[in-house]
């Protein structure tokens, strides 16, 4: 899967074996995957919490924009950049929303 196929209708999911965990010792939230760990910042946590295997990219963007009373364009850029990065690093997969 490549992040090049990401569209507003794509539905992101956490790949098999990927988990969210609160790392109490280091006081942060991380994504765990086989042999890998990724620390999330506030934006990352908010996006990850929206991923349920049902919502499309545009739905996630709209929900976040509403929740944070922020501009759809700005949130959209953040979400797409984050998803692309995590797809390339093998934490997230996408299915076509069709």
């Amino acid at each position: 899967m490549s992040s090049a196929n990401l569209t507003k209708d794509s539905v992101p999911t956490l790949l098999q074996g990927v988990m969210v965990k609160h790392d109490d010792v280091r006081e942060r939230t991380v994504l765990l995957a086989p042999e890998r760990t990724l620390a999330l910042d506030g934006t990352g946590i908010a996006i990850i919490e929206m991923i349920d295997g049902k919502k499309s990219v545009s739905e996630i963007v709209h929900d976040l924009a509403k929740q944070y009373e922020a501009d759809v364009q700005t949130i959209g850029n953040d979400v797409v950049a984050f998803l692309r990065d995590l797809i390339n690093r093998g934490y997230i997969g996408i299915t076509d929303g069709a």
Binding site: D23, V25, R26, V30, L32, T37
Partner: peptide, 13 residues
């Protein structure tokens, strides 16, 4: 007990 101690120490994997 080793696993419990490891988690408390900060081990994730």
């Amino acid at each position: 007990s080793v696993f419990q101690q490891a988690a408390e120490l900060g081990v994730l994997h």
